[in-house]
Simulated assay, not measured.
Amino acid sequence: MLRLEGVSAGYGRIAALAEVSLEVREGELVSLIGANGAGKSTTLRTISGLLKLTTGRITLDGKEIGNLPPREILARGIAHCPEGRRVFPHLSVRENLAMGALLRRDRAGIAQDLEAMYARFPRLRERSAQAAGTLSGGEQQMLAIARALMSRPRLVMFDEPSLGLAPSLVEQVFAIVRDIRAAGTTVLMVEQNAMAALQLCDRAYLLETGHVVRSGTGAELLASPDVRDAYLGGAI
């Protein structure tokens, strides 16, 4: 479904990705793991058009999407739920959700999906008219996820969905990610909690300093002594 071939990208003269190749098959949940600064978030930003690739190709269903405008990539079915939630703080919860459907024209479908988001996240219904910036961190994360889903994506990319959340909320967020995948949406997830990410995913890629250094099923990476020692605190 999604394929990166030899993708390099960076920030000015700073190279952040170096010939990264990976693929996401339709219906999969794929995780990107690695230390801070490894290039995980940069990979998602490059896929979604927020960062220009300097070499390589990105294709969706075999069609080139590398360096397309973010609006066009969203229109083709890829939604990006960014690190740090990035809700529009001065807009209401309802207005934030409407922004997720900005490119859609099916009003009946939008209304139906809005109701579905309120059913899935009852707290958002309660806070519908409240400014998003006044929500708790957990509520903002729920809003960011729901906003991404309002575009009806075929592939949704989550960047550190558990970051800064209380343990009880972390489990809730991971359960939501599982449900989204179970409902048929393909998922590409960056997650600092490598143990949870590997337990959750079908396959994973390990990035170090902008390079893919290992890939395999979640179970294979969990069983790797090198991965356990470096990223899982030696846990088995």
Rank of each mutant, 00 (worst) to 15 (best):
I14T: 15
I14H: 14
A15Q: 15
A15F: 06
A15Y: 07
A15W: 14
A15T: 15
A16Q: 12
A16K: 13
A18P: 00
E19N: 15
V20Q: 09
V20K: 09
S21G: 15
L22S: 06
L22R: 05
L22M: 14
L22P: 02
E23R: 12
E23G: 14
E23T: 12
E23K: 09
E23F: 05
V24F: 02
V24L: 13
R25V: 05
R25F: 03
E26W: 00
G27V: 09
G27P: 05
E28F: 02
L29Y: 00
S31D: 01
S31Y: 02
S31H: 03
L32H: 05
L32T: 03
I33F: 09
G34V: 09
G34W: 11
G34E: 12
A35N: 12
A35D: 14
N36V: 14
N36Q: 13
A38W: 11
A38T: 11
G39H: 04
K40R: 11
K40G: 08
K40N: 07
S41W: 05
S41L: 03
S41V: 10
T42I: 11
T43Q: 01
T43L: 01
T43D: 01
L44E: 08
L44R: 09
L44K: 09
R45L: 13
T46P: 11
T46V: 10
T46M: 09
I47Q: 03
S48V: 13
G49W: 08
G49T: 06
G49D: 02
L50A: 04
L50C: 02
L50E: 07
L51D: 04
K52P: 04
K52I: 00
K52Y: 09
K52F: 07
L53C: 12
L53R: 14
L53F: 02
L53P: 04
L53I: 13
L53W: 04
T54Y: 09
T54I: 10
T54A: 10
G56I: 12
G56V: 12
G56F: 15
R57P: 06
R57E: 15
T59F: 13
L60D: 03
L60E: 03
L60W: 12
L60V: 04
D61P: 01
D61E: 14
G62E: 10
G62R: 13
K63W: 04
K63I: 10
K63P: 00
I65P: 01
I65W: 12
G66R: 10
G66E: 04
N67E: 11
N67F: 07
L68K: 08
L68W: 08
L68S: 01
L68E: 05
P69Q: 09
P70W: 04
P70N: 02
P70E: 02
R71Q: 10
E72D: 13
E72S: 02
I73A: 01
I73N: 03
I73T: 01
I73H: 01
